[in-house]
Design a protein around this nucleic acid. Structure first.
Length: 557
RNA sequence: UGGGGCGUCGGCAAGCGGUAAGCCAGCAGAUUUUGGAUCUGCCAUUCCCAGGUUCGAAUCCUGGCGCCCCAGCCA
């Protein structure tokens, strides 16, 4: 159970509950536009909205904000639903689409026209831009602003029927062209778009704008707290205006700062570019901050939810360190992932005094979880160890295998390096060691100690595997912060993916299935790639490394 | 005098007039058949700055400074 820290939205909701507002009900909603894949930033919003509903015994609706047919696709609605479920949230029968409300939205628009609060405007894009004014100068009223109610109703009706070409007419709210808030300068409510919608087909050729659709959709659903990101703060007066003019249920809009994560980008536009321009293999590339990518990388929903709770909710724009996300996965995987031995860069070791035989040794599946039990690992005369675990001329801080030195092979024996075999180029091809039969299992009866324990895999029993090692997608902490003349893609990390073939993994991994997660002892957490792994040619993704004291020391050497 | 926000440790973040929580990172030590995990200790006399109110201010007032967002018939 994760510990909760108070945040201002939780406080507002709790206060409203205590005051008996909304009949003591809390209804939130997660309203994605189906025009891209969900990413870690959305996860924060999902956790916030669904979390609040859970916490206060309310409901959270999943509503697709599909008011713009030119950008939205079914592929995205499917992926969004899969991602929300994967995160662990259920909306039950509360699945909605803004497009379901097109009829009511239209009727309300007519009502506003009748109230003299909306009019059909013939200004072109360019004219409207000019009439809007600037940030520091007031706008001018449209010459069409004074059309009669009858004419407006007639024109709007004909817009609906598709009598006018796209771009020639809009329905606008009649508010205040001199407002300091540009959103209030007679914002467009409806525009003509002779385009097929992924759900309503060709039924409509006028579509409502976000500002006009969102609040009313919230209202229809009985939403009590409409939580959105900071950039909508300026829109709140408009959100309130529509609801007040219509005289319908009025949810409270609350804005919070979106999540920014170091060494990555969290903007749909940029993620789309990474996909379209081939910097990554797709929306689910394990380096992507999308939920699909993160999932394929091996992250767990528990880790993501915990992360979202830890980053908090506020109004200050911030950049959260990737290290926190990594901490959260390690924390969860440490408790749950079975341990296994795998050698990524094999060095052949021959135990010269070991008989030509094989034996099976007991290995603990997860020291953090006694119920995980043990397994048998085969041992034999020829083994593989990690290249990084041997140095011919080690510095004094290195206490792994070196000539003349004794170390422990995990769950097996103490071995001592007697000599190395080199090829014509002076490259080491084999390490010859002797073992101490008395140390079977890893303890010396005479009580002598070794400084290091190495993981290993028996050569004749090993399975070959491909392992993909990932690093951050960007080298820059804040890739959005581009220098003059550069683009965020200039900061892409050329080493974000390293593919290692011929890795040696222990035989117990033979039946590992897509998505299965393991700790490769001393290396990190890995999962079976859900896309490319095949029986007989397994592929593993490194989710995250283990904390590595030695790596830290090496950097300082 | 366009409008709207935000400024508490290296990164997040509590705090709401009573004398700076917690987490990540970092550092030091203990422990360890993963240089993992675990455990201990250290890490903001100070809250953007300057005045003011008060017995007492990160919290209230005034004035500065800095940063972010807004001129789509996108969301």
């Amino acid at each position: 159970m994760e510990t909760q820290v108070s945040n201002f939205i939780r406080s507002i909701v709790a206060g409203d509950m205590a005051a008996g507002k909304n009949n003591g009900k809390v209804i939130t909603r997660f309203p994605p536009e189906p025009n891209g894949y969900l990413h870690i930033g959305h996860a924060k919003s999902i956790c916030l909205n669904f979390g609040l509903a859970e916490e206060f015994n309310g409901h959270c609706n999943l509503r697709f904000d599909d008011t713009n047919p030119s950008k939205e696709e079914q592929e995205y609605v499917d992926s969004i639903m899969a991602d929300v479920r994967w995160l662990g949230f259920e909306w039950g029968d509360r699945l909605y689409y803004a497009s379901d409300y097109f009829g009511r939205l239209y009727d309300w628009a007519v009502q506003l026209i009748k109230q003299g609060k909306a009019y059909v405007c013939d200004l072109s894009f360019e004219e409207m831009r000019q009439y809007r004014g600037t940030l520091t100068e007031a706008g001018k009223e449209s010459p069409y602003r004074t059309r009669s109610v009858e004419e407006n109703i007639d024109l709007f009706e004909r817009m609906r029927k598709g009598e006018f070409p796209d771009g020639s007419k809009t329905l606008r709210a009649k508010i205040d062209m001199r407002s300091g808030n540009i959103n209030m300068r007679d914002p467009v409510m409806y525009r003509s778009k002779h385009e097929e919608h992924h759900r309503t087909g060709n039924k409509w050729c006028i579509y409502p704008m976000y500002d006009y659709a969102h609040g009313q959709s919230d209202s229809i659903e009985g939403v009590t707290h409409s939580i959105c990101t900071l950039e909508y703060e300026d829109h709140r007066p408009l959100y309130d205006w529509y609801l007040d003019e219509l005289g319908i249920h009025h949810p409270q809009q609350i804005e919070f700062a979106r999540l920014n994560l170091s060494h990555t980008v969290v903007s749909k536009r940029k993620l789309l570019r990474l996909v379209n321009e081939g910097y990554v293999s797709g929306w689910n590339d394990p380096r992507m901050p999308t939920l699909a990518g993160i999932r394929r990388r091996g992250y767990t929903p528990e880790a993501i939810r915990n992360f979202c709770e830890r980053v908090g909710v506020g109004k200050k724009e911030s950049l959260v360190d990737m290290a926190l996300l990594e901490f959260c996965v390690r924390e969860h995987l440490n408790k749950t992932a079975p341990r296994v031995m795998a050698v990524l860069r094999p060095f052949k070791v021959v135990i010269t005094n070991y008989p030509d035989q094989e034996e099976y040794l007991d290995a603990i599946n997860n020291p953090e979880d006694p119920d995980a039990g043990t397994r048998k690992v085969p041992f034999s005369k020829v083994l593989y160890i990690e290249q990084d675990d041997f140095m011919e001329n080690p510095p004094k801080q290195f206490f792994r295998l070196a000539p003349g030195r004794e170390v422990r092979l995990r769950y097996a024996y103490f071995i001592k390096c007697e000599n190395v075999v080199k090829d014509d180029h002076g490259e080491i091809t084999e390490i010859h060691c002797t073992y101490d039969p008395a140390t079977r299992g890893g303890d010396a009866p005479d009580g002598r100690k070794v400084k290091a324990t190495l993981h290993w895999v028996s050569a004749q029993h090993a399975i070959d595997a491909e392992v993909r090692l990932y690093d951050t997608l960007f080298t820059k902490e804040e890739p959005d912060d581009v220098e003059e003349g550069k683009d965020f893609t200039d900061y892409i990390n050329p080493k974000s993916l390293e593919i290692r073939n011929g890795c040696k993994i222990e035989p117990s991994l033979k039946d590992a299935k897509h998505g299965d997660r393991f700790q490769f002892e001393r290396l990190g957490y890995f999962c079976v790639d859900a896309v490319d792994s095949k029986p007989g040619s397994p592929v593993f993704n490194r989710t995250v490394t283990l904390k590595d004291e030695w790596a830290k020391i090496q950097k300082m050497l």
